[in-house]
Amino acid sequence: MNAIIDPRSVQADSAPAVGGLAIRHVHKGFDIDGRKLSVLEDVSLTIAPGQFVSIVGASGCGKSTLLRLIAGLERQDSGDILLNEVPVAGPGLDRGLIFQDHRLFPWLTVEQNVLLALSNSDEAATDKRARVASLLTLVGLDGFAQAFPHQLSGGMAQRAAIARALAPQPQVLLLDEPLGALDALTRLRLQSELQRIWLAQRSTMIMVTHDVDEALFLGDVIVVMQPGRIARILHVPSTHPRDRADPALAPLKAEILSLLHAG
């Protein structure tokens, strides 16, 4: 199955037909000390297969909650979340989730961590190992298969987490501030790598970020959230791979920032 992994074997424009998401009138609240706190109110969003969606918004406005609903870790109070027209009910291997902290299991080596994600597949053990090896190559972790997470730098650990999330070949990859904990330089490098991986995989990706430049560099679509709701959905006219200094991005950036300040 290295077609998924080798960028050259996939045509950049041959987007898969699976991985389309429809979010319709979703409401979600939490009970805090008996009081109901409404976190998402009537959120609707349609995402085409293979699209890269960036979500930006102030802290606490419900971005993580939205991703956790799509991942099936939480259940919405009302409304529908459809993946390929089928309602989402609980977690599934068709959706992968990458958390802000890498959440690798510290007691497993990098290879074992990724292998664990393949425990539901009935491939032969040698095939699994070969797949893990090519995934580690994809994220640039050759030679670190036997390392424990504490022996990795923050950026390397986040790459290992990306490899783990990619292993079950999800149709939709959800990324919750995946680069948030990294230094600026590592961040820039990993943004380019994410773009490379996305171009290679062409799966749907939805990424939450606080960094507007990052959102613009990677996203086809930018979703700007204000507490509990979607304030605006912007389409980025530029193609991939993208130049960070593309002049078409500047007015979008100004618009997003003004929306964020207004919210």
Binding site: L73, P91, L93, R103, F105, L116, S119, N120, R164
Partner: peptide, 27 residues
């Protein structure tokens, strides 16, 4: 919770969650 959540996302069976998450945590 954060480790158990990863187990849910990866659809680990009960036995695997015990073997790979609970047991190492308690070890």
């Amino acid at each position: 919770k954060k480790h158990l959540e990863v187990g849910r996302v990866l659809m680990l069976s009960r036995w695997r969650s015990f073997r790979f998450i609970l047991l190492p945590t308690a070890l």
